[in-house]
Amino acid sequence: MLLLTVFLVIASFAFTDAHVFQKTSIVNPFDQLTVTSILENHHVISVRNAHKKLFPGPTLAYVTPWNNCGYNIAKIFKGKFDYLSPVWFYIEPKTPTGYVIEGEHDVDSSWIQEVRGGDDSMNISAKVVPRFQCRSWSTPDWYQLASNTQNAKQLANQILKVVIKYDLDGIVLECAYPSIFPFFVQRLSETLRTHHKTLVAVLPPIRNEEQKKVLNAQSFAFMAKYIDYFSLMTYDYSTSRIDGGPAAPVDWIIDNIEYLTTDENRHQLLMGMPMYAVSYAPYHYPEPLGMETVLRKLQEQRQHNAENQMPVIWDPVSEEHWFKYMINNHRSSMHIWMPSLTFIRQRLAIAKRYGIGVALWEIGQGLDYFYDLF
């Protein structure tokens, strides 16, 4: 049964020896991208590079239970990802008996062993650092953690118990702005480092001046003494705009990198990179779309296009692709902004230039051939 499962997973991919840009017939990656080129090549991956890490910086990949094909992506591209962060755990507000950590029912120990198991001949290894997210916390709950050292110690110890129980390599902590809880951050760091575990903290990106009061170069430098890596959520840039726009414009990404980090701590930053699209339609809230959904929409577009080569438009300012999708019996349209090979390539170039890593949200939403580039 196990052999059949592995076969079915591998059979869904098409393999080639060609590099991803060669196999998609894009001599210059800025050449016009077409619906046809995406539909015909998105599932083709390089057998030569499937387990070979091409990007030199640290790469963290999130995996979610609601897009569980990401679990298989982690295995198919074993070796690409230095850190895998399954989204399993939620920290509920404090009760009279302590904090409550939910999510143990999602833990898959066999998957952990499979993706983490090293292969000396291929230099393959990965650390499993599940996400622990504070959920349903009120302002008084945050204040209790920030002001009470006993609460901070208690929560750090409870997290460690889960880490030890499942033999995890560390955690990704998502709790608003970690700099608000300096004692908790220090305590958690010391607790994990005593057991040689990794601590990654999620940071919201800088969008306005108000945020700079709690997140700036000084607070980042302080946290960098206790936190190994920071997963910066540099995506969803335009979701507050009525007319929509790019998810991760390059100028905004660079502004965040340069504002928060220095030469001494920049290597600890993981630049967030979305593997999903976002659609914007009149009178509707922005909607995140997995790339499988985007493929279906592109297929529909191709069926209604006689030339069969309708372009996906490249925005040279944000360095992101988008296309128009007709709705309401072609009486109106939505704009869909999406990652592409070129989108990823340009952001990896930024990461290399600044000497930082990347954090992918999340690999269950992307296209197979995206991961060749990492």
Rank of each mutant, 00 (worst) to 15 (best):
T5S: 11
T16Q: 04
Q22T: 13
S25R: 10
I26E: 12
N28S: 07
F30I: 05
Q32M: 13
N41M: 02
H43W: 12
H51L: 05
K53I: 06
K53R: 12
L54C: 06
Y62K: 03
C69M: 11
K80F: 12
T95L: 12
P96Y: 09
V100A: 01
I101G: 01
H105K: 09
D106W: 15
M122E: 12
N123Y: 10
K127R: 05
F132Q: 03
Q133T: 04
S147Q: 08
Q150H: 08
A152S: 14
G170H: 07
V172T: 14
A176E: 10
I180D: 12
P182N: 09
H196V: 07
L203I: 08
N208H: 13
N216L: 04
Q218G: 02
A224P: 08
A248Q: 05
I254Y: 06
D263Q: 10
D263P: 00
L270E: 03
S279W: 04
Y283Q: 11
P286G: 03
P288W: 11
L289K: 15
L289T: 05
R296C: 05
Q303R: 09
H304Y: 14
D315I: 07
D315K: 07
F323E: 05
K324P: 00
Y325E: 00
I336T: 04
W337M: 03
M338F: 05
L348Y: 15
K352H: 02
W361K: 01
I363P: 03
D372N: 14
L373Y: 09
F374D: 00
F374L: 15
